[in-house]
Design a protein around this nucleic acid. Structure first.
Length: 937
RNA sequence: GGGUGCUUAGCUCAGUCGGUAGAGCAUCGCCCUUACAAGGCGGGGGUCGACGGUUCGAGCCCGUCAGCACCCA
């Protein structure tokens, strides 16, 4: 066995073996267990969040597979319409080309090339992390069969009257030139201005103060070119007499009405609001109420169009704003400019301000109770069942409180705009004839037969594609073969759990539930495990533009500072931020990043996966778990060294020591805890429990305790210890395997045969379960006593600064019968672990020599001081102990002297408290006596 | 404005049933002891954000406030 654990070699060895052997595919006769991967976008590479999420899913998958469940982890990727199209467009731009240069067909070919590259990268990353997905079922949201399912999805909803096409105000991204949904718009607060303009009153109208104009306040002056009214509050004393009169809209030379509407906030601005129905959601609604004309003044790129006065045509919206303000000022119509904080709607992909824009789009009805023809509307048929599924417990959120987020969104849901003016995505299966009639069916042939159209009637398919989420919302169905009733669909739907981030509860989780129920009549999963976000060590979100991203594989393999700098500073959207990023990177990783291996990285993620909490990624944790892997490696090395070919008769009679029975007993409890932690998705506690058991109990104590036995000459005891060493280690490897698959597999191959286990892989071995009959409280108590005894001796040695090489004499005073019995029984362990001579029991009343002392209950552990010990050091040690004891005692005395406590606390608490006090008094007396003796020297 | 979460050791975080606060990393001392120096042994380090309430007893339950983060409008 190699001297040191080398993750790279181990990982390479097992990755391929597992996959080639077909062990990732569902098998086993147990209950079906399935997880659908949230398909990563083919926009590039996987980040830390994916690695984290995949660690959790793989741990669950491996755990259930080991439990014998028929386990499927379904892999795949998402075409991610807008996001991927943007990436490819950016690449084209760098190459001096553009989407429009290429044309649709060629462009889509380019995207497919990119998809191949990105998809392969992602697959490779998933493989590297040890994720045991069933590659034979790999899916992509634009696979032919998947596309068919998406079309089926649309057509069925359409047939149920739940899809409509309409001219609506939608969020328009002027850079991407497509509609986007409400969810794809983020509100950002910015410092802006509030401009006050004078709008002249038409005819003889005058304000109360006799002025011939009113002042409107706006944050968007350029939209005044599309104003079709000014609104005031109907009960606003200042203006209500003007309702029904008109103003002369400056610059455009149109007369527009003054309307009264209680949407107007009298306190805000001047109380007069300019109304632009074509470019503001509130104004649009108000316009509908007052039957105002709608004047669209923008082109698709948010430049001013020909509806506006000639002077402004062709200007970009921000240029137009400047011009409008300047022109109004020149005409003396600019009253004032205030500073103002405003919320800007930003496209989450393009990062530019989106415009409310009037276009024809496809929508899913999610809000109507009943359709005009009496059939159930979207609210009844889609939204409400999704709410009920969680209310009624068919789906459980973990942690539970995320269900509130889910409910809140669904209860306030809007209809969903599902068409996108993109080239990359599923074409909408709708056709138009020359008169603009719309036909929806699965393909053109079906359209003709369904609507009985003549063969020669020219039809044109809709140019638009679906919102990506409209295809991913059937992921669990489509990957299992829906709309066909495949055996896989029957077996693995609903899936067991969805592992996902809270950021896509709306985008994806809610829609999965809605469509799963609508299209297949059952929920898509039983539980939703919602994990936190991975942040950097400062708590910042990781993003390329901040330059704080980490590639999980760079932690696995390590990376030099130069390489890391290069990765972080090339291809930036804003190259000017590079120096800042470089500085921060040099500070955080002055020597680059050391390799920790996959297992350690996975263990780190698990240990930080506390519910309802984001993760600040801390490299030192990963380094710590790398050390943990090494620890396991070395412990195995010790076990093998002591067990391989050591016993000519390994099946002979075996006697189990206290230590053997103790570690076996502890193992049972750990196994029970592990099961509970898996059940409750507490990967952090699972990681902690196993770490603690392996390092602090198995390695620190048990392995040390086996040494004297194995050096001894009692064959039956040696056999018992060897057997225990092997069996517990073998169980440990299985316990750890879901979290750290590689090193456990590698070690298991060597340990298992010696532990009487056979099989080609640890992956298919049963996960250890507790056997309560092996719990041995007596052995546990013995070893706890032994540990306390040994600690007492070690404290003396360390406190006195005595070299570990010196074998100390050891006396024991005031030993109770039980202590004496234990000392006799466990003396071998004591002498071996503390380098002392056999402890000598002092008879009652026998006066010991002056000694350094530790207390264990009423018993004193004594190391004679003659020639060894620094008097002052021992005094200091004893006085410190005394001070501690006195302080504890005082606190406890205060408590029991309180009448309230005595009367109120349950008897067993009172009893425990009194026992504690007695114990502390005894200790204090012993300490005082000892201090006195040493002082007298 | 509404909502959610967080605040515990220098740092990153656990803390289950309300019963004297734990881990890793960092730190200090001793030690290259035959599994492991990526290590062993021992130690130090806490007003559990603040205030109030409930309780015999509060890190934990309730209320108010402060700070931070996120979501929604």
């Amino acid at each position: 066995m190699d001297k040191t654990f080398d993750p790279r070699a181990i990982e390479a060895r097992w990755r391929d073996t597992w996959e080639r052997s077909g062990w990732f595919a569902p098998q086993g006769s147990g209950a079906p267990y399935s997880i659908m991967i949230p398909p990563p976008n083919v926009t590039g590479t996987l980040h830390m969040g994916h690695a984290f999420q995949h660690t959790i899913m793989d741990s669950l998958t491996r755990y259930h597979r080991m439990r014998g469940d028929d386990t499927l982890w379904q892999p795949g990727t998402d075409h991610a319409g807008i996001a991927t199209q943007m990436v490819v467009e950016r690449n084209l731009k760098l190459a001096g080309s553009s989407r429009l240069d290429l044309g649709r067909e060629k462009f889509v070919e380019k995207v497919w090339e990119w998809k191949k590259y990105s998809g392969d990268t992602i697959e490779n990353q998933i493989r590297r992390m040890g994720s045991s997905v069933d590659w034979s079922r790999k899916a992509f949201t634009m696979d032919p069969s998947y596309s068919e399912a998406v079309i089926e999805h649309f057509v069925r909803l359409h047939e149920d009257g739940l899809i409509y096409r309409g001219k609506r105000l939608v969020n328009w991204d002027p850079v991407l030139q497509t509609a986007i949904s409400d969810l794809e718009v983020v509100q950002e607060e910015k410092d802006g201005k509030l401009w006050h303009f004078r709008y002249p009153l038409a005819g003889s109208a005058r304000t109360q103060d006799g002025l011939d104009y009113i002042v409107v306040a706006t944050t968007r002056p350029e939209t005044m070119l599309g104003d079709t009214a000014v609104a005031v509050h109907p009960e606003d004393e200042r203006y209500k007499h003007l309702i029904g009169r008109k103003v002369k809209l400056p610059l455009s030379d149109r007369e527009i009405p003054i309307v009264g509407d209680d949407y107007v906030d009298r306190e805000f601005g001047t109380g007069c609001v300019k109304i632009t129905p074509a470019h503001d959601f509130n104004d649009y609604a108000l316009g509908q109420r007052h039957k105002l004309p709608i004047i669209n003044i923008f082109t698709h790129t948010a430049a001013i169009n020909d509806e506006a006065p000639a002077a402004y045509r062709g200007l970009d919206r921000f240029e137009a704003r400047k011009r409008v303000v300047a022109d109004l000022e020149a005409q003396g119509l600019l009253a004032k400019i205030d500073d103002h904080k405003l919320k800007l709607p930003i496209g989450d992909r393009s990062g530019v301000v989106v415009e409310p824009y009037l276009t024809d789009q496809w929508f899913v009805d999610l809000t109507r109770k009943t359709l005009d023809d009496g059939r159930p509307g979207g609210w009844t048929a889609i939204t409400e069942p999704a709410i009920h599924a969680v209310e009624g417990g068919s789906i459980k959120f973990v942690p539970e409180n995320w269900s509130n987020t889910y409910f809140h969104w669904l209860r306030n849901i809007q209809d969903w705009c599902i068409s996108r003016q993109l080239w990359w995505g599923h074409r909408i299966p709708a056709w138009y004839d020359a008169d603009g009639n719309i036909y929806v069916a699965r393909n053109e042939a079906e359209v003709r037969s369904k609507y009985q159209l003549p063969d020669d009637l020219p039809l044109r398919q809709d140019e638009d594609v679906f919102d990506t989420w409209f295809s991913s919302d059937i992921w669990p169905l489509a990957t299992l073969g829906w709309p066909q009733e495949t055996p896989e669909l029957k077996k693995f739907y609903p899936s067991s759990v969805l592992v996902t981030g809270f950021d896509i509860i709306f985008f994806w989780v809610a829609r999965l539930v809605m469509m799963g129920l609508k299209l297949h009549g059952d929920v898509p999963f039983r539980e939703v495990y919602v994990h936190g976000l991975i942040r950097d060590s400062e708590g910042q979100k990781m993003s390329k533009s901040k330059g704080n991203v980490l590639d999980p594989l760079d932690l696995v393999d390590g990376i030099s500072l130069d390489e890391l700098l290069k990765k972080r500073t090339t291809g930036l959207m804003k190259p000017e931020t590079a120096p800042k990023i470089e500085k921060a990177t040099r500070k955080d990783y002055p020597a680059g990043i050391e390799a920790v291996g996959v297992d350690a990285l996975r263990y780190t993620f698990a240990s930080l996966a506390s519910p309802g909490r984001d993760i600040r990624f801390d490299f030192s944790r990963a380094a710590g778990y790398r050390n943990f892997c090494n620890k396991i490696w070395n412990a195995t090395s010790y076990v093998l060294m002591n067990c391989e070919e050591q016993d000519p008769n390994p099946d002979g009679q075996a006697w189990l020591s206290e230590a053997d029975r103790w570690i076996i007993s502890r193992l049972q409890k750990v196994e029970a805890e592990a099961a509970e932690h898996f059940r409750s998705y507490r990967f952090d506690l699972l990681a902690q429990t196993l770490y603690q058991f392996v390092w602090n109990e198995y390695c620190d104590w048990y392995l040390e305790l086996t040494k004297p036995t194995l050096r001894g000459d009692n064959d039956s005891a040696k056999r018992g210890t060897r057997r225990t060493l092997l069996r517990v280690l073998e169980a440990i490897l299985r316990l750890l395997h879901p979290l750290m698959p590689f090193v456990t597999e590698d070690l298991w191959q060597r340990v298992a045969p010696l532990a009487g286990k056979a099989g080609p892989t640890i992956m298919l071995q049963p996960y250890p379960t507790a056997q309560p009959e092996k719990i041995d409280e007596t052995a546990e108590a013995d070893v706890e006593w032994l540990k306390a005894f040994i600690l007492g001796v070690r404290q003396i040695r360390s406190g006195m600064d005595i070299s570990p090489k010196i074998t100390l004499p050891l006396l024991v005073q005031d030993a109770a019968a039980a202590d004496a019995e234990r000392i006799a029984r466990l003396a071998g362990s004591i002498t071996a672990l503390t380098n002392v001579q056999e402890p000598l029991l002092l008879a009652a009343g026998e006066e010991p020599p002056v000694s350094a002392t530790s207390l264990l209950g009423s018993m004193k552990i004594l190391v004679p001081m003659a020639g060894l010990i620094d008097k002052e050091a021992e005094l200091a040690r004893l006085r410190k102990k005394k001070a501690q004891t006195e302080s504890d005692l005082a606190k406890n005395l205060a408590r029991v002297s309180s009448e309230k406590f005595v009367n109120g606390a349950p008897p067993e608490v009172l009893e425990r408290e009194r026992a504690r006090i007695a114990q502390q008094r005894q200790e204090l007396a012993a300490l005082n006596e000892q201090i006195g003796k040493i002082e007298a020297l």
